[in-house]
Design a protein around this nucleic acid. Structure first.
Lengths: 109, 109
DNA sequence: CCAATACTTAAGCACATGCTTAACCAATCG
DNA sequence: CGATTGGTTAAGCATGTGCTTAAGTATTGG
């Protein structure tokens, strides 16, 4: 999924789709590349779960899948907050042990 | 930055660093690859701003940079909420126009 | 029905990526 | 000191990625 978001073209597609669903050729229009190239990107986005699409008649309409985005968001959030919590505890520890030399020596185990 | 997060090894490193800072060889230990390979991943992570490191003596200590994570998180969040807001408005529209046939015909243009 | 539209499939190619090994440098340790 | 530890640099290689063009296949408007 991060794999899918790692390409600028695909992020542009996600950005476009975050506004409204669109057909393949609508998505391709602003992108300086051939239509098959765009389709390949869409296949990857769909495989990653970030985009869903369905074909009616001869036009395939693509829309974003917010659940996948939410998962990616959550992964990052967990790592970040995990670190920040640790950082906060360290701050508290430093505050507590300030001017307390007895607690500053040998805090290990 | 998403580029940096697109590799499983690098996500593992971020995961490890989200718990606590670590030296290069500590990071390398659980990874089934040579040390230079790990260093290359670290260089990429550092170039992306996700990780910061400093060398004291002969050991380089790496730590996570939460600001970069926050930015990635925010990018995803914006796209997701943009879509969900649109979705909500559509829901309202449908609710409003329910049982109002005059508004349901020819909404185009 | 015929042609235009909207993709789709397939093959191929250039460059990026993720490794490897070998050789090297600089701090420590005994 | 000389050996070890912790990391760095460089070169090379296999595979992956992001395109391309060419040649399809359905659908649909006139």
């Amino acid at each position: 999924m991060f794999q899918a978001l790692s390409d600028p073209t695909r992020r542009a597609v996600v950005e476009r789709l975050s506004r409204s669903p669109a057909s393949v050729s609508e998505l391709a229009k602003p992108l300086a590349m051939s239509l098959p190239a765009v389709v390949q990107h869409l296949q990857l986005l769909e495989a990653s779960g970030l985009v869903r699409s369905e074909k009616v008649g001869r036009v395939r309409t693509c829309r974003i899948e917010p659940r996948a985005l939410r998962m990616a968001e959550q992964w990052i959030n967990e790592r970040r907050t995990s670190w920040e919590r640790r950082f906060d505890r360290l701050g508290e520890y430093l505050a507590e042990t300030r001017d307390e030399p007895s607690k500053r020596t040998k805090p290990r185990k």
